[in-house]
């Protein structure tokens, strides 16, 4: 019995002794999302999402419409100033259907550190687009969403997937 107690005591001591603070690698510089968005992007995929069907749990929730019209003609360019802040944008649709009313103007984001909305502005006209996953930006993909609402409820969305040129 005493032997078992000694063994247990030894195990406890060993367990405590083996505990030591773990060293984590530095997490690195925070991702500058606004800077990552800047550049020239080519539209590669368009998905139409029936959010009303999503809410109701109906089948047929989304549809890839990229091939219906030449959406891949569309090129979007977000420029930044010397400090990396958003400045101007251009949308060259080519033969693609328009994804926004505006073709040029200035752009801003709702939060410089963690943006979720891009506002495109030209004169009195403003178009809002939502930014998708930040992770995809690291692999050169920009995902932008456009929502259509009815009485404050999102009914229909378009998800545009861009690849950096």
């Amino acid at each position: 019995m005493k032997r078992i107690q000694y063994i247990l005591f030894a195990i406890c001591i060993l367990s405590i002794w083996s505990c030591k603070p773990e060293k984590f690698a530095p997490i690195g510089e925070p991702q500058n999302v606004v800077k990552s968005i800047q550049g020239t992007w080519g539209l590669t995929k368009v998905t139409q999402i029936d959010q009303d069907a999503n809410t109701k749990g109906f089948p047929y929730k989304q549809l890839d419409i990229t091939a219906v019209y030449p959406y891949t003609d569309l090129v979007l360019a977000f420029q930044g100033d010397a400090e990396g802040n958003p400045s101007t944008f251009t949308i060259n649709s080519g033969n693609s259907p328009q994804i926004a009313e505006l073709t040029s103007g200035s752009w801003t984001v709702d939060d410089a550190k963690a943006p979720s909305i891009i506002s495109l502005k030209n004169g009195e006209v403003t178009n809002s687009l939502s930014i998708g996953s930040y992770v995809s930006l690291k692999s050169g993909k920009l995902i932008i969403k456009k929502d259509k609402k009815l009485n404050g409820k999102v009914i229909l969305s378009y998800q545009y997937e861009f690849t950096k040129k």
Partner: peptide, 23 residues
């Protein structure tokens, strides 16, 4: 109906305006 009913003709998306793609 709040329950999806399959039918011979179907529109996607169910609600859209005239600027949207209809299927």
């Amino acid at each position: 109906p709040l329950v999806f009913t399959a039918s011979q003709f179907r529109l996607f998306p169910a609600k859209l305006d005239y600027t949207d793609m209809a299927t």
